[in-house]
Design a protein around this nucleic acid. Structure first.
Lengths: 203, 203, 203, 203
DNA sequence: AATGAATGAGTATTCATTCAT
DNA sequence: GATGAATGAATACTCATTCAT
């Protein structure tokens, strides 16, 4: 028996991570396609290839499943911004990289960014207070750093920075994903322009 | 037709329109408060003071009712932009007035702007093709006018103009409505800043 | 159009009392046969010939439906005892008539007495505090009257009276209904003996 | 078979019986606390510290588990009565001791008597025909002995004896356990009175 | 032998829609 | 025209049971 089949054998006894992963993916996909209300447990389970009852082993309710998923996706973005603020010297660099990250997500895991976008606007899924405060403090840091480096105007508020650096790029990507103006997809050029808008707007 | 039945007919129409109006208002209110799924026909009818079955005389389904309502609210904004493009001389004026209109809506009929905002991001309620094309052509006109008046950079696309002039202000207002950064409500100063951002971003 | 069909016609517009009645009867029957847990909403609705959703127009939950039904059936017995205590002169007469009433119920509406019997012992359906207190005060009155008339021993408590005058007869009837000792049904003789036991036990 | 495997085998059996015992205790406890429907296999297994699947090695279903448990608990009472009828000379003694046993059970293993009481009234758990016949014949013997010793009236039936000597005391104890009339618990005096009621009622 | 991951039929409840009046 | 009683398919969730390991 080689190592691989040994692992497979043990896997059968322990919880099948693949199934949980498929549940998470199905949920994101169906919430994106049909909204929270339209993503029924039965459709999620069917698409994930698991029994309906199975997902209640990990999530105590549909609400919890979606909330947790949203939380983890937002957390990823927060972490990204946080690490950029540590590693970058200029705000120009922070913004370029953050927006680059958004476009990367949109290219590699488009459902993920759509998922965040859909739930961001659903009244049943407010971003958690903790995350909201975290976002706020990061935006304040962006402004502080930017002002210090003469890249950001003193009059800019954290709120404005958030609208310009986070919301606007995500909305732009979403417009493209929907093909609202005919075009779908994006180029490096698009990405540069969005970043340029943000950088200039803060000046 | 005698006088009497004529009056009855007129009265019937008058009464009906009041009812339809109440249905429309209730629908907006309840969709905003509870989301599409949470706005039940029975709650809408109760609040409007009509029978549940009544609204099926005018709308063939709940989906149609909400779709139509969204259509008419978006149409109002389109008309506003259209009329501004006819009456204003500069794009600065167009933007100032359009964004002023958004803030006015947010002050006077907050439900309406929330309604648009919620459904804009709901995949079950895409803006109609016709309206999308209309919006597109108006945004093109904005750019054309702006370029002609040296207010807008030649490189700006209609899509970018839409993101900057329409989406960004609406998202800003929504952030304030939700109190996402602690603040709620807005001042003339806020409105001016948003307009200034838009105008500058297009340069 | 005669009066009868007129009524029938009007009935179609107003709530169909017959349906509610059938729901109540089906509920009692199925709870008696299968217990609370075994009486599913779908089986109740099917047997009553109504849609599943219909009964939620009158009862907000299955629990409420059954609770209300139990309450009303217990109330009937309480009322009977209360009226007997007003109208009878001796406790012998009260007991004879009350036990007569139990046997009548068992003959005419056997499901009803079984229903009370089943739920009396179900932990999810405690008799309401109000009814419990009412029963207690009536039992105290039984003792008081009986002591005054030299029919009941001073040492008897309200609790004992309840066990002897209410619980024992109901349990006896239930034994017969189940045919636990082979016999089913009962005669006047049986009824007299149960009453005689009760009367003597209180002496 | 070597010594070692012999020990293992014995140990396995010992361990198993401990598990089965724990399953039985958990089942009684949870059925009493939450009713049959509320006592889930998973909660029973958790409380017993065994795997959910384990109990299916001994019981083919939850229904069977509970049925068997009820059977064994009823059997204990039957045996007690049987042995009393052999060892006692008078019916007074039999009744005193049997009712003493009920009160002892209520004091020492209250769950057990509650368990019998709850299931006695659940239509899904009829006492087995065999046990019913056994009870019947014992009650006949009680009457026969009592009549022979001039302690029981000739007119008393086995059924009446059952109601008076078994059902009434159990119901009395249950009333106290529930605190239906305010009082909970019991004294020797209570026990004597219940026995006295029974003895007198048979005269 | 013993486990507990996985199943899916079953539950109570909701609500858009229909239609007899 | 207008009503609202009545429907029943759909929903989220539970839990006894099975079976691969």
């Amino acid at each position: 028996m080689n190592n691989h089949s040994f692992i497979k054998k043990r896997m059968a006894r322990i919880i099948d991570e693949g199934k949980i992963q498929r549940i998470r993916e199905s949920t994101i996909e169906l919430v994106v396609r049909n909204g929270y209300g339209g993503a029924s447990i039965s459709s999620i389970a069917r698409r994930a290839g698991v029994a309906e009852g199975y997902l209640y082993r990990f999530y105590s309710s549909k609400q919890e499943l979606v909330t947790e998923l949203l939380y983890s996706k937002v957390a990823k973005i927060i972490e990204k911004l946080e690490s950029l603020l540590s590693s970058c010297i200029s705000i120009r660099e922070v913004i370029n990289q953050l927006i680059g990250e958004f476009f990367n997500m949109a290219s590699n895991t488009p459902e993920e960014i759509k998922f965040i976008h859909v739930l961001m606007h659903d009244y049943n899924f407010p971003v958690s207070d903790e995350q909201r405060r975290h976002i706020q403090s990061l935006c304040e840091k962006v402004v502080r750093m930017g002002v210090a480096g003469n890249e950001v105007n003193k009059s800019i508020s954290a709120e404005e920075a958030y609208g310009i650096v986070v919301i606007y790029p995500i909305e732009f990507i979403n417009l493209r994903m929907k093909g609202f103006f005919g075009k779908t997809g994006w180029t490096n050029e698009d990405q540069k322009r969005v970043a340029e808008f943000s950088i200039n707007a803060l000046k």
